[in-house]
Design a protein around this nucleic acid. Structure first.
Lengths: 346, 346
DNA sequence: TTGAAAGCGCTAACAC
DNA sequence: GTGTTAGCGCTTTCAA
């Protein structure tokens, strides 16, 4: 292993000078710099990150905390973060948070110990208070897919209420009035916001919202298993809807996984999609494109948001002035495909 | 930040003693240990990983090198590794390798600089020579999904030839003889092995292999984009098959993504699956379960293999004797679902 | 513009 | 069984 000393010796300068050249900081004479750079290349010197982190208390490492990487939604987050990290010469460290507040806290603590200043967390389980406190301690902490007003500058989020609204409006425009909602019971904000959007749209159009057409998944365990869970959740919730015997011409699902589960249950029961029942999803993940009929859904630009979050985190630790107090809101968008049927007006 | 010195002072012992109890190594008196442990808890001391890595040249960090995390196949690998890493108190660091040998080498180099002894790599692009050399330098390097005989003890792999064979045999048992193959052009071994298995099975059953029914994807660019790419690849390759006007009753696809792409193309052209054409995939990823008809496929126990690889890597750096010279081969398995039709004997 | 030197927090060899 | 001490490779004052 070639160290800074080796370079210093070979270049006939001090280690301090080499350090300056490497970090491109401080004053160094032009030919001195050139000489050192040449030697560095020649010897193949690469600074030891641990030594560096030890003394400087920073490690150019980006931390990611998510519940589950095998779900492509989170995979997309990781991918997005990784891309800007590599571009900005950052390493990436993962903390799998499992499924509770303790897990999230522990993952962050572990990251911090490694000198990880920049952390992106998809927190489902920690309380607002916990996260607010964490944000105070860690200038580079950014929340993705969550919004807490008092730390708005740290939140990269999607307007789920709008998402719920536009999917409902689309259904309404296609003359669906008897709309069932299949939602997840996640204890975070998203499902509530999406339903809020649904109710807003219904009321704005002069329809009464029937609470008995809103079905909350009861598969508490299953959903923790990622995409498969979502699928099963959709199936079982749709089954309850069917068994309720109520009239409906369309379903709004919490996300694409649930939508596909519901669609399959319908199909397996001889109910045609979209001719008999229309379905609309949320997220616009890969499966929504490949199922038949292709799923009409709401785009969740998660990779883009992840990239934004990573960049934001870096900015927060580099040049604070420009960044604080901004708000980082992304907008959902309707992706029109083939799972919604245009009803004749009745 | 509380350091080892703080603990030593508070416990009235030397830092060396604290270090011993923290690492649970060396001789320490019982009450001395108890006292130190109590102080550690009290002060909330957690060792600085960078200082530790600096001096010991190891960092209890597991490195993962894969091309693309947003593909759930790789997400599964990451997930599996992460699980055993957390269990064994290791951190996880990612190196996204992009899509060339240089990227893979660079990712590994970066990991090593961080004192990462244990690295799991899914290498598609590096040559055997490169990997063999790397294995010599890095005792904790493990290859996943690749087999190189001279470093068999470092390779956790699946027998793709057997996979190709059993999927062919299954088709044969269902009286399909005119079998088309849609394969990827990846420059690694997998497609070749699977086709070899296909040819073996055909010949063993007394059928001649028609090379003109083997279609190699020509979408060099697209496949780099992960699952979507696979899907598109399947569509376009199936299209060429269709346009060739040849007779076939079944398709073997390189993987599930391609199978689904092919299935959708067939469906969109009014060809029924499996009644008109049967399809069999490979990998048993999530989508194979949720498409309709559900895809018959070959299980690739990737998460299990990833866990195994992670454990192997740790063993290799801990107690070498027991581990070297073993072979780490996993076997594919048929997953029977609904995309293969039982043909009447002709 | 450059160098000398202190020290980051920890481990490990050696001494007692 | 426990303490002393010399670094690991680097950054960063402070002096020159």
């Amino acid at each position: 292993m070639v160290t800074i000393k080796d370079v210093a010796r070979a270049a006939n300068v001090s280690t301090a000078t080499v350090s300056r050249v490497v970090r491109d900081k401080g004053q160094v004479g032009d030919k001195c710099r050139a000489k050192v750079q040449k030697i560095i290349k020649q010897l193949g010197y690469r600074p030891n990150t641990n030594a560096r982190a030890l003394v400087s208390k920073r490690s150019d490492t980006m931390g990611i905390v998510t519940p589950n990487l095998s779900d492509p939604f989170f995979g997309g987050i990781a991918q997005g973060i990784e891309e800007v990290a590599r571009q900005m010469q950052y390493k990436v460290m993962m903390g799998n948070s499992l499924h509770d507040e303790e897990g999230e806290i522990e993952a962050i603590a572990s990251l911090r110990e490694n000198g990880c200043e920049n952390i992106i967390i998809h927190s489902k389980y920690s309380s607002n208070e916990t996260l607010i406190k964490l944000c105070e301690e860690l200038p580079g902490l950014v929340l993705i897919n969550r919004f807490i007003p008092s730390i708005a500058g740290r939140c990269v989020w999607l307007d789920n209420t709008v998402g719920g609204r536009i999917s409902t409006e689309y259904l309404l425009n296609n003359n669906h009035k008897d709309i069932a909602v299949l939602t997840s019971y996640y204890n975070n904000q998203d499902p509530h916001d999406r339903i809020r959007g649904f109710k807003m749209a219904m009321e704005m159009a002069g329809h009464t919202v029937k609470d008995e057409l809103i079905f909350v998944s009861d598969l508490k365990q299953v959903i923790k298993q990622g995409q498969n869970g979502g699928n099963l959740e959709g199936e079982s919730t749709a089954k309850r809807l069917l068994e309720s015997g109520q009239k409906f011409t369309a379903i709004i699902a919490y996300n694409d996984h649930m939508a596909v589960g519901a669609m399959n249950l319908l199909l397996d029961n001889g109910i045609r999609v979209p001719e008999d029942v229309s379905i609309i999803g949320f997220d616009n993940v890969y499966v929504s494109m490949i199922v038949r009929p292709q799923l009409t859904t709401i785009n969740y630009p998660v990779v883009q948001m992840a990239k934004y979050a990573a960049q934001l985190s870096i900015d927060l630790t580099k040049d604070k002035e420009n960044v604080e107090n901004k708000t980082h809101l992304f907008m959902p968008e309707l992706i029109e495909r083939n799972s919604v049927y245009h009803l004749k007006e009745s």
